[in-house]
């Protein structure tokens, strides 16, 4: 792939698609389980894209953004998009503990998205554990982290590193090959999911933990998003129904690697979709430009979620 595909950090189409699919999924769960008055908990960002989605598509009013960094905290407060977003200053572990201790927060289900930029760490694993152990029933948990193999030590060290992080769920026969290249993202997605299930059982959550989300995506970096729900016992079967329905799109087989397109390219492609046959490279060429086959496929699969940004030139 040519190098013009790897620039532009501000536009991350794969991440945008992923976010859209996940919010659609949460909406399905929300309506089927009749969840209301949910609280959204996210990690600090000055963009608040997830908060906007939470408000618009899930109709969530109460939102908490956690920001540890001093400057980031200041900027987050400045940038918060709605009056009902509360920006809390502190490490996620400390703020989550405060929220868990708060009776009022305990009275509503949460959507928690721990969207970390970095590789999986002890602190993140601790946050995941805390959310599963202590959040109110029907809380939906998502976590996103960097999953490039080389972030986890040299190949022969990776299994031990994972064992350090995730404990007993890491199988003794996990191979070195399973921790290399693209396989590493699959391994991480599966083992973090297993870890969540294990915590659900070990902390005796009456409805356990039901895995629901598993997406690998890549813009400039391989990322993994996994998560699920800790349903109230009475909601276990409805949640399972939603997730096992064929319309559930939050566990795609293939990773999301969307092409970075100009608005003009994207609009041109959209005008060719949807269609019954597959969009071919030839048809793209006929319309005036060119893309590689896999880029075309990725766009065709996710054109409805493809983020469209117009750049404002001041």
């Amino acid at each position: 792939m040519a190098s013009f595909d790897i620039v532009n950090y501000s536009l991350r189409p794969s991440k945008g698609i992923q976010r859209q699919i996940i919010f659609d999924g949460i909406r399905m769960l929300k309506s089927r389980l009749e969840l209301s008055d949910m609280i959204y908990v996210g990690l600090g960002s000055i963009w608040f894209s997830d908060f906007v989605q939470a408000h618009k598509s899930l109709d969530i009013r109460r939102m908490v953004s956690i920001e540890a960094d001093d400057t980031g905290y200041c900027r987050a407060r400045f940038n918060k998009p709605y009056a009902t977003v509360q920006v809390r200053h502190g490490h996620s572990s400390a703020v989550l503990a405060e929220l868990h201790d708060d009776d009022d927060c305990q009275a509503h289900p949460w959507v928690v998205w721990l969207d970390y930029d970095g590789r999986l760490s002890e602190a993140m694993v601790g946050d995941i554990r805390a959310v599963i152990e202590r959040s109110p029933s029907d809380t939906i948990l998502l976590t996103t982290f960097k999953a490039r193999a080389t972030s986890y030590g040299r190949p022969e060290q990776r299994k031990e590193r994972l064992r350090d992080l995730l404990g007993d769920v890491v199988p003794d026969d996990l191979s070195k090959a399973g921790c290399k290249g693209d396989r590493m993202q699959e391994t991480l997605a599966d083992l973090v999911t297993d870890f969540m299930k294990a915590i659900g059982v070990e902390s005796a959550r009456p409805g356990g933990f039901i895995p629901a989300f598993r997406i690998i995506y890549k813009d400039t970096m391989e990322m993994v998003t996994v998560g699920g729900i800790v349903p109230a016992p009475g909601n276990v079967s409805s949640a399972t129904d939603v997730i096992s329905d064929e319309r559930w799109r939050c566990r795609p087989q293939r990773r999301i690697v969307a092409p970075l397109l100009t608005i003009r390219e994207a609009v041109t492609l959209l005008s060719l979709l949807p269609r019954d046959d597959e969009l071919t490279r030839e048809q793209v060429r006929v319309s005036g430009f060119d893309l590689e086959q896999e880029q075309i496929e990725a766009f065709e699969r996710y054109y409805r979620e493809y983020p469209m940004f117009a750049q404002i030139v001041a």
């Binding site: 007993d168 769920v169 890491v170 199988p171 003794d172 297993d194 299930k197 294990a198 059982v201 070990e202």
Partner: peptide
């Protein structure tokens, strides 16, 4: 619940081993 816990099954294997 335990049989749905991946850690349980993996620990059972370790115990048998």
């Amino acid at each position: 619940a335990e049989f749905g816990n991946p850690a349980f099954i993996r620990n059972l294997r370790r115990m048998i081993a």
